[in-house]
């Protein structure tokens, strides 16, 4: 058994919040540079150049890539041989978010009630925490701040099994089409297929966390991802929706077993800032 004090959780979460907002994923940056080489529409090129320049400025000045520093989504893989000491585990995560957003000069975007008052909670809490118990004696913490613009364009639909592969693909492509320039394309398209209603939505979000250069481990699904990416980029939405060849940088799917009556499909759209950062606390 491994004892981990909550002070280490607080400090890890704080650092991850700041780094996720300041530092671009190098694979995203590489994909954007490749996109710039392919684009010949002047406005698409200017937009991509500004996005690439912004990464450098954010890094140099330690400022958030985007002013919308998002709702903090936390994925925890908790080793079953870990014993957490010193206080409440979930409260430690919230405290880390509080400190990261305050000390990191990150925007606080959370309102306490969705309808009544919509009063800002002032510290960007509560974060949304998903916990999985896994083997081992360490804790893997992933922070994925999610902006409202992209999250608002996400959709879930309970398709019929008869809709099949084309029904699934059309729903995903139509979702990206409906989103247009709103979610800050070039986007990353996270997709959940299968499971049930709530698991499917979570799968779509989790799919975003797979490294962009790793295709789906199942051959048929890797082919679906490739085909969807090509068809989405043929839509011509382009960077920020003003036209061009690059609408998405990747399509990432998580598929799972489901009820024989069901075919749930969820699409979680991610902006080009694609903020996420992980650490293992041993």
């Amino acid at each position: 058994m491994n004892e981990i004090d909550i002070s280490r959780i607080i400090s890890a979460v704080k650092t991850l919040c700041m780094e996720a907002n300041y530092l671009i994923d190098p694979i995203v940056r590489e994909r954007l540079r490749i996109a710039l080489k392919k684009e010949d529409l002047p406005i698409a090129r200017e937009i991509l150049e500004m996005i690439l320049e912004n990464h450098i400025l954010a890094h140099e000045k330690q400022m958030p890539i985007c002013q919308d520093c998002g709702v903090v989504v936390v994925f925890i893989e908790l080793g079953q041989d870990v014993h957490i000491v010193g206080g409440d585990f979930y409260e430690a995560i919230q405290e880390g978010v509080r400190r990261g957003y305050s000390d990191g000069y990150l925007r606080k975007s959370i309102v306490s009630d969705p309808i009544f008052g919509r009063k800002n909670t002032q510290d960007n809490t509560p974060a949304i925490i998903h916990t999985e118990i896994v083997q081992g004696n360490s804790i893997q913490i992933t922070i994925a701040p999610k902006g409202g613009g992209a999250e608002n364009m996400s959709e879930i639909k309970m398709l019929k099994p008869a809709d099949g592969i084309e029904g699934m693909k059309n729903f995903i492509i139509d979702c990206v089409k409906r989103a247009g320039g709103n979610p800050c394309p070039p986007v990353i398209v996270g997709v959940g297929v299968g499971g049930d209603f709530e698991q499917c939505a979570l799968m779509a979000k989790k799919a975003l966390l797979r490294p962009l250069n790793e295709p789906n481990s199942v051959l048929e699904w890797a082919e679906v991802e490739r085909d969807l990416l090509a068809r989405i980029n043929d839509l011509g939405i382009g960077p920020m929706g003003t036209g061009g060849k690059t609408t998405a940088l990747a399509v990432q799917i998580i598929q799972k077993p489901c009820h024989m009556a069901s075919l749930p499909v969820a699409v979680n759209i991610q902006c080009h800032a694609h903020r996420h950062r992980s650490i293992r606390v041993e």
């Binding site: 500004m50 996005i51 912004n54 954010a58 985007c66 002013q67 920020m240 003003t242």
Partner: peptide, 9 residues
Amino acid sequence: MAVGGAAVK
């Protein structure tokens, strides 16, 4: 239109 996600710029 301003470029979303080019916020420091």
